[in-house]
Each structure stands twice: as C-alpha cells, then as structure tokens.
Design a binder for these strands. Structure first.
Lengths: 341, 341
DNA sequence: GCAAATCCAGTAAACGTTTACACAAACAAT
DNA sequence: ATTGTTTGTGTAAACGTTTACTGGATTTGC
C-alpha cells in the first residue's frame, strides 16, 4: 500500500502538499493538483483510516449494537442504518449483545465501540441494564435507540407507540364483535415493549367494558414457541376465546399452529393478529392481520439524526412513528365465525 | 479519554512500561504492574484502537460484505460470523453492496474495507463481477465466501452442493410418485446458485427417464413474488403439474399463494418444496418440505477459517456442507393427492 | 570476588496522517 | 519604491501506541 510519503517523493513535493491535494483543501496550483492526483490514481492510493482517525480524532464510524440479527425485522433496521451511514460517508461496525442476560458481552461491546472511536452508537431493540446505561453516559457516546427506549427517556428513541398500537388492534377486534380476546407472547416485565402492549390491550378491553381475566394474558418472549405454548395453555383451560392478539408475527404463527392441533382453523374458528408487519405476515396463508412498523424508516431516521448531530451539532429528537393496522385474512367478524353463536 | 502518557505520569514510569504492563508482555516488577493497572482501572483506560492499528499494522477487524440483511437467512450467517469474530477477539465491520447491479457500491466498499485495514473479508451470497474479483486480488484481501463461489473457485467457499441438493429433493418427489414436476424461482444465468439447482433438477428428472418441458422451468429471482408469478404463468398454461420444487422457502410460499388463488390446496392438489430451511419453513401451515442449509455453521466456519489463516497462517480450505431434506407437510405421495388419478 | 546473565525500566523512533506556522515569490495598491 | 496581500509550498509537531535498543542494578555461577 502506497502512502502519501511515497507519493510526495514521486511528485517531488512535500507530504503536506499531497495531503492538501488529496483532501481538496486548497492551497496548491492546478499543476501540482494534477500531478499528485495522477500519481495517486496510478498507485491506487487508499488513505489509511487508522492514521486519519488518530490525528483527526474522527473515525467516520458509527456502531450498531443488536441482540442478534436473526429476527426478521432487525434486518430491515440494519439496512436502514447502513444506508443512512453510507449516504453520509460513514461506515458501520456491528456487534451482537447476545440474546438474554449476557450483560458481559453487552458491556464489552460498548467499551469496544469507544475504543474503536465510534462517533455514535445505534442500539437496536435491546433491554439494557442500568450499568450499561451509565457506561454509555460515562463514555459520552452519542446514542440513539431504535425500537426500544429507556425508562426515563434519557436517550432519544425511534419507536412506535406500543400502547396505542395494541389498543388499536384490540379495538379493531372488539369492533368486529369479539369480546373474549386474549393476548399472547408479551413479557409483562419488559417495560419497553411487553408491558406497554399489555397495557394497550387491557385499556382497550376496559374501554369496551370488558375485564380481561388473568388467564387471557399469556406471557412469553415474542417467539413462535411462546405463541404456540401460550395458546396451548390458554385453550386447554377451556376458556371461550374467539380472538387472540399476538405481540409478534411469529408468535401469531405459533398460535395458529397450536390452534390447528386443536382442530381450530383461522379465521373461521379463531381470529389471530400479529405484530410488526414483517414480510412473513404477507407470505403466509391466511395472511396475517397485523400492526406494521416502519422498521427500515426507523433505522434510517435514527441513524440520520445521529449523524446530523455528529456533523452539525443538531440536537437529536426521538421520533414516534405512525403504525398501520393491516387488516388481512387472519381475522373475521365474530358473527361470521363458526363459533360465533 | 485517558492515554498511556497520562497513566505513565501518574504512575511515574515511562509510557513504554505502561504499554508493557497493559499488554502483559513482561519486563516489569509486580509492584509496577499493580500500580499501573490500578491507575488504568481507576480511569477506565481504553486503548485507542486507531493508534494500535497504525503502529502494529493489525486492526483486529474483519469485514462483511452482503447484498442486504433482509433475507431471513443472511441474519443467521451474520450471527455465525460475528460469533466467530467475537470469540477470536475481532470486531466486525459491515457493508451492503446493494441488491442487483450496483457495482459501484460494491467496489467502493471493497476499497473501504482495505482502507479500514481489515485483516480479512467475508463475502456473503453475492454475485460479483470480474472487476470486483481483481480488485480483491490486487488489494490482497484475505477472503472467504459464504453461500457463494467464484466461477473458477479462486476463493475458498463455504457452501452446500446445490446440484446434489436439488437432485435430492427432486428425486424425493419422484420417489413418491410425482412425474410432472416443475422448478420455480431460479435464475439460469446465475451460475452460483441458479444454474446448479436447475441442473440438479434436470439431472434427477433425466435419471428417472423424464424429459422436463421448457415451461416447467420457470425462471425467477428466489423471491416470494417470483414464486407467485412463476406458478401463475405455469398453471395458466394448463400443464398437468403435480409438484413444484422451489429454490427458496419464500418462493415456495409464493407458489402456495398462487395455487390457492386457483383453488388448489397444498399438499392435497399440489406438492411444493422449499429451499434453505429457514425458520419460516417451520412456522407456516403446511410446514414446508425443504432443503435445510446450515447457515449459522457456514458463517461461523467461514469466519473461523479466515481468522485462523490470519492468526496462524493456516491455509483456508473451502468447505461443502451437508444439507438435509426435511420432509414435512407440503408434499404428499401422488396417489394420495386428489389429482393423482 | 568477578564475569555473565537476568531483571526493570527508560529513550526514542516509527506507523501515516493532518495542520499550524513559516516563508519565499508574485502581485496589487498606494 | 514601499507596504500589504495572495498564492503555493515546505517544516515540523502532533495524534496514541508499540518496540528495538540501551543501560543500570541485581542476581547467578564459578
């Protein structure tokens, strides 16, 4: 790899001049400009980013912290972030925090981000501990949150209104006649996504004069499996449920699978709603009624705001995105269902 | 951020000693060791990676180049790569190459990887041009390929045997009585995945004495949409197809959706197979018969081999992974299908 | 008791950039 | 003709590390 030093020698100018030409900062004649550029091109010069970072104290890197990339929506978020970074001439460094309680990996990776001199950090869909939060603050890392938030809103978050979203989808179910509606898959101890969604559901039920029984709230971890086992628990309890709100599309598929095993078909015997609006929800039969979150846009907006803050000092304001209730085939008015007496 | 210089001052030793202590390279007394470490910890010292990279010419970074993260299997691959990197103390820089022909972004990102001083490059599921290939070679980037390969096998690839896989799944269909079998979703001009799968299909058909008609090979781009439109084209042509092999799970769902619209149910009227064995294939009803690829393992193995090469100079050998035919509910022996006369 | 080896630690160069400062030459304004 | 400004370029320091080299002090071997 050729360096500016060698270019300087070959062009018979100083390295300062080469640097100025290569950065286009002005202060050279057209002639030197051409000569230096020609030599640089001929040797396929590439700037050593480490040296640049060291001296300029700007790495042109932002970091992404994410539990795991395998859930289907995280890909969209990452795409959004990376596109925003690319547009701003920034590169992206990615680290997993591990799913579940592996706090060590999370903390290690936050430190790693700092020692890599990232100029900003995007944290995706993570529940972080107080320790992690104070670490971020101590390291003075510019941070935005996608699809998650902190308890006291200390960090700008790019999210949807989970309470409103679940309220809306529950209300939809109520509006088409359902009354015995369960919610499956949420973790009530998860204050960022689980608890709000349960609240939205409960509020909607209350607004309609229903008091949801405890068994109607089946906790879980948003996964297919928790949808599956949640419905198994619920149904074997002989409750007369006609509709189920799920907190993810995958959980909805789990519910549908479990229902099948009981000989129940969706939506003729049971209405089921998903959440997230992943591509999945359009690809399955019946297509899922779901709540669409604009993940790509959320990722892009979160990263863009972060980058604007970095480059022009604008303060970062979190943003609450509109969601959309997609009404498709997995739900049906109660009186058209078989069990709608 | 505190530097070794300041630690040195506070500990009243030279920066060389601090560096030695912090790297544990020996050549200091227990006493200085403790003193330096205590000060470093107290100030939450973090090494400046840029400085380290610059002087040691080792960045401890590997790069991932991937078209887009939104297909469901790419997440598993990335997880595998990142886990391998983390285990080896390496960090990961991620860049998209853009889907489809945006060669500029691909080339830019290859250059970016070099100027970031990555020690190795993992390219995922990409069709790259000759230009890209020669660029990689010129930059002397250690590279492994996951789920893709070059025409002349110039780069080590971590893949499955696509010909054998499609041969196996087609043979399975033949073995349960099907004869009029189509293949949908492959791009015959894609020599890394498309053409081999078509060949596997064709070989299996020929082996069974069938000569597949041209219309039975519906080209596409592996997407849901191409499955959907492929089947629409096929079926409106009035061919008497009883089974369809798809080249991705998503394409299979597209076929199933299109079949539904014709009033055909899967598997009672039509058997359909997927490809990839994504979580999707287990979550839908009917569960898809599919070819499972060990994506996580492929990613992990590819990155591990790369890292071993970097750290201990071992040469990288590509690896062909075993696939598994998962027989599930989307296929059925012909004589148990409704149309099996 | 003396040479040799070992242990600890410091000095300084190097990595590849950016940039403040200096300065000579050319040009403009008076 | 003097001063001032602009233009083009070079010198050298700085960024935060690592590491080869050096050397004094202590220990070891005989």
């Amino acid at each position: 790899m050729i360096t500016i030093k060698e270019i300087a020698k070959e062009a018979r100018v100083s390295i300062a001049t080469v640097s100025r030409v290569l950065n286009g900062t002005g202060g050279y004649s057209q002639e030197t400009f051409d000569r230096v550029n020609k030599i640089a091109d001929a040797h396929h010069y590439l700037k050593n980013a480490a040296a640049h970072t060291l001296v300029s104290a700007s790495s042109k890197i932002i970091g992404i912290l994410i539990p795991s990339v395998s859930t289907s929506f995280s890909g969209d978020i990452i795409n959004g972030i990376e596109d925003a970074a690319y547009a701003a001439g920034y590169d992206v460094i990615l680290a997993h925090t591990g799913i579940g309680g592996d706090e060590r990996r999370l903390l290690e990776n936050i430190n790693m981000m700092r020692n890599r001199q990232v100029e900003g950090l995007v944290i995706v869909s993570n529940q972080f501990t107080e320790t992690a939060l104070t670490l971020i603050q101590r390291l003075r890392l510019n941070t935005t949150l996608i699809s998650t938030s902190t308890r006291n809103n200390s960090l700008p978050a790019f999210v949807i209104d989970d309470v409103a979203a679940m309220h809306a989808v529950t209300s939809y179910l109520l509006s088409i006649g359902h009354q015995h509606i369960a919610i499956i898959g949420a973790d009530p101890d998860d204050h960022v996504t689980g608890a709000p969604r349960i609240k939205g559901y409960r509020d909607a039920m209350m607004d309609a004069g229903m008091v949801p029984s405890i068994a109607w709230v089946q906790r879980g971890d948003f996964s297919y499996e928790s949808g599956y086992t949640g419905f198994k628990r619920l149904y074997s309890g002989e409750y007369d449920i006609t509709a189920v709100c799920c907190v993810s599309d995958e959980a909805a598929l789990g519910v549908i699978a479990a229902a099948h095993e009981f000989g129940l078909s969706v939506p003729d015997d049971l209405s089921v709603t998903g959440f997230d609006g992943t591509r999945l929800s359009e690809m399955v039969r019946p297509r899922l009624t779901t709540v669409r979150q604009p993940f790509y846009r959320m990722g892009k907006a979160g990263a863009t705001a972060l980058l604007q803050h970095i480059t022009s000092g604008e303060s970062i304001n979190g943003e609450t995105f509109p969601f959309e209730i997609e009404i498709r085939e997995s739900t049906k008015p109660l009186d058209t269902q078989r069990r709608g007496e």
